[in-house]
């Protein structure tokens, strides 16, 4: 179905990649850690490596959580738009198939928030 309108119109999507000046929005969420209340929206260059994202973006974002220091990064389960995937750490976001407005989620088995309660 589509929108009903008085006359035909061409919708102008507000958030296409071209509007972000060469960068792209990527959403990240550490599942079962609701202290951070919602996934975060990051503006990143497509050529940044996945490891750099972990070091310069995810670490300052989430390190305040007591679970963070205990993360075994080799055991982290990653999801890209809901599908499980294994990131290549020294490859760029683009090389990992992470494009504009991709949602990246990660689970840390055994670390499920304070008291194991999702927070």
């Amino acid at each position: 179905m589509s929108v009903q309108s008085i006359r035909p119109f061409k919708a102008a999507a507000k958030d296409v990649a071209a509007n972000f000046h060469g960068q792209q929005v990527v959403y990240f969420c550490w599942d079962q850690h609701l202290m951070f209340y919602a996934p975060v929206a990051k503006l990143l260059p497509p050529d940044i490596t996945f490891q750099a994202v972990i070091d310069t973006e995810l670490t300052p974002t989430y390190s305040r959580h007591p679970d963070f220091a205990r993360i075994d990064w080799a055991a982290v389960q990653w999801f890209k738009d809901g599908e499980a995937f294994t990131p290549v750490l020294d490859t760029s976001l683009a090389g990992n198939g992470i494009t504009h407005k991709t949602a990246v989620h990660f689970k840390t088995p055994g670390l499920n928030g304070l008291n194991g309660n999702g927070f």
């Binding site: 179905m1 929108v3 119109f9 919708a11 102008a12 507000k14 958030d15």
Partner: peptide, 12 residues
């Protein structure tokens, strides 16, 4: 999904 043309224009 019913009216995507409307919501792609959202000022988020």
């Amino acid at each position: 999904d019913n009216e995507p043309e409307k919501y792609v224009e959202a000022w988020l």
